[in-house]
Design a protein around this nucleic acid. Structure first.
Lengths: 194, 194
DNA sequence: CCCCTAAAGCAGCGATCGTTGCTTTAGTCA
DNA sequence: TGACTAAAGCAACGATCGCTGCTTTAGGGG
């Protein structure tokens, strides 16, 4: 127990570890967009990333864990900081924000990663949306601070994220700007009746 | 070329082929509920089903295709016939129907199969909901036949299936009867404003 | 500037996967 | 009932996966 600094909190490198991590993440995203998730194996990822397979087996034990990490980092701010639009009105914030969500869902890499994360199990799929959920809460808080009355986050997520994700994941319908606009409008109208 | 009946339309067996198919389907559903989808491999399925691996490699080339078939048969009427509730009112139909959807989504086998199908790619995941979509359309048609005014199927799917699937797939929130009730009510209220 | 340690590379292994040619079984139709 | 054919079983193979002890590199601290 004598060692003063066993390098426990040593993990803030800008060096090799970070480069490897970044290369692996990129390899996963690229490969997912190119081939069926079924073919995504650790050696294949390693070769694409220019890294030795052993590294992957040691740092991430399974593809599931790696996918969860990649999904988290892809669908969240890198530093854990929430970035939300602040246009002055809830409607403006939501429209700006939904654009970002739609960008994720229409990007081939994004949707492929989302699908793979869902397939990897509950943890990974929840990780994809936890940040979006927090952003939604932040925007509702802003509106509340302005004196507006807003529904709870749960209903907002159901009404906004629900349709967007449903269409992206389960249908091949186009997600056009006007439809997204309608979704936001339906949410803002609906909160009065609820 | 002389052969009169090359048994092209010979595929309606109640015999061995159907038994194997059924055993394999059940094996897939069971295994998905027990272990991570990552461990789902054709030899493993074959052993659980009491069938030789070669059979799987020949009938279904990949796990993806097998998953798509299992998902289709699990989430659809076996014979392609649509079964929808007919309570006399749209509200009653929708509440009965959402119960069925929720049953699918809260059943451990059901949600695991859904997740795996999503992971298997666009085709399989779309197959999971095509029947639900058709049922929704049928119920709206019934209401329209009664003289009621109903929104289009797309909006109904967004508003009903969206929240249900969002919660089941992306959150660990409980899906309680009262919440489901609220979702249906929100849909029925919202159609007036739209 | 040099040491020290965490992380990446290397080599080699057992297990299992996916595939293919052939044989055997079981349903169907005359 | 007997033949015909589609489908399942069998056996053997090459490839690749996932894992482990050990060596080498590189980044950070005294």
């Amino acid at each position: 127990m004598g060692s003063v600094s066993p390098n426990t909190a040593n993990a803030r490198p800008g060096g090799r570890a970070a480069r490897v991590r970044s290369a692996v993440h990129r390899a996963v995203r690229e490969l997912l967009a190119e081939e069926p998730a079924e073919a995504l194996t650790l050696p294949v990822i390693a070769e694409r990333a220019g890294v030795h397979p052993t590294t992957l087996y040691r740092r991430w034990r399974t593809i599931g864990e790696l996918l969860a990490e990649v999904a988290t980092s892809r669908f969240s701010g890198e530093n854990g900081e929430l970035v939300v639009p602040d246009t002055g009105s809830l409607r403006g914030d939501l429209e700006r924000w939904t654009e970002g969500v739609v960008d994720d869902l229409t990007d081939p890499e994004g949707i492929a990663l989302l699908r793979a994360a869902i397939g990897a199990g509950g943890f990974a799929s929840r990780a994809c949306m936890v940040d979006r959920h927090a952003q939604l809460a932040a925007m509702l808080d802003h509106e509340r601070a302005r004196g507006g009355t807003v529904p709870e986050v749960g209903r907002a997520a159901d009404t906004l994220l629900g349709p967007l994700l449903y269409r992206a994941v389960f249908t091949d319908l186009q997600i056009g700007p006007d439809w997204v606009h309608d979704v936001v409008r339906a949410f803002l109208d609906g909160q009065r009746t609820g």
